[in-house]
């Protein structure tokens, strides 16, 4: 049986039962957009030539949750996030955001989401103010001046506002990138290593801002990180990937208990070696 036949057979014969945990199972085919989970990843697969970068991944992120997507290098996190953003089209399965298939209907939902990733930079030749203005206008932000002033205050950007973004320190750039990610008050926020280049003090400072935003806005956050302390502090739920597959999911504390580890850090190391 070929890999594809195997996949299809598996998909038909062993559907993941919904409701086993808040983040498992397939969403119904037709779901009212308002009732849809913030993110639903259903049998998601991505094949590059002969390599399966993502291999039948399923999880659901309910609205208002912060979920961590963890895994070692090459685990498939970035590809999964890229498919959720609609930047990569899945080979099989689908990634839904707020009830819309990101492969075919992404433009219906893009104004309600945003992201930050170390792979992507803000235009370095523009000042921070110019960048925030351009992206605010792209997202159609109402009262843009007020929104930028709020972000300047929240992220203490006043002293760098008129400086060229490319000449900022790594930490300052990250703060600006997170501010850009919040410019449109997104309902769904995708963060790839949001504090990777920050010192522990600044990282905690950014985390507190993200927590504050999530609480105030009731936003959904999908976060990829290698910093397990960060994940434990921010995330309600964790999905751990290895070799393109989900190898474990649960609340951080539950996972530690399940694998008889002291904390998530140990769970991560254990799964990286075993899986």
């Amino acid at each position: 049986m070929s890999r594809i036949e195997h996949f299809l057979a598996r998909k038909h014969l062993t559907p993941v039962s919904p409701g086993t945990t808040p983040t498992q199972g397939n969403a119904p085919d037709r779901l009212d957009v308002d009732d849809a989970p913030a993110i639903a990843v259903e049998s998601l697969c991505k094949q590059y030539r002969t390599h399966w970068a993502v291999d039948e991944v399923n999880f659901i992120v309910p609205k208002g949750w912060t979920v961590g997507l963890l895994g070692g290098n090459g685990a498939g996190k970035t590809t999964t996030i890229s498919m959720i953003m609609g930047l990569v089209v899945p080979s099989f399965g689908r990634a839904m955001v707020l009830g819309h298939d990101m492969a075919t209907e992404r433009h219906k939902v893009l104004s309600r989401m945003n992201f930050e990733s170390p792979y992507v930079a803000l235009p370095g030749r523009l000042t921070v103010r110019q960048n925030l203005t351009v992206f605010g206008r792209l997202y159609g932000v109402a009262n843009l001046k007020t929104r930028i002033e709020e972000l300047i205050e929240d992220f203490e950007l006043g002293d760098v506002l008129d400086r060229v973004t490319g000449r900022l320190s790594a930490g300052q750039k990250t703060r600006v990138a997170v501010a850009k990610a919040l410019i449109n008050d997104p309902d769904v926020l995708l963060l790839d290593e949001p504090t990777a280049s920050l010192d522990p003090d600044r990282a905690e400072w950014v985390r507190s801002r993200l927590r504050g935003y999530q609480k105030r806005r009731g936003a959904t956050i999908l976060l990829s990180s290698h910093n397990m302390t960060e994940v434990e502090q921010l995330c309600d739920f964790v999905v751990i990937m290895s070799h393109g597959r989900v190898v474990a999911m649960g609340r951080p504390q539950e996972l530690a208990e399940r694998f008889k580890c002291r904390d998530l850090d140990e769970v991560f190391i254990y799964l990286a070696r075993v899986a």
Partner: peptide, 18 residues
């Protein structure tokens, strides 16, 4: 090409810009 050189293309593709 400015978008490619400045690694900004994904920012644009993820925005509502058509």
């Amino acid at each position: 090409l400015e978008e490619i050189w400045s690694r900004n293309l994904a920012n644009l593709m993820m925005s509502p810009l058509q």
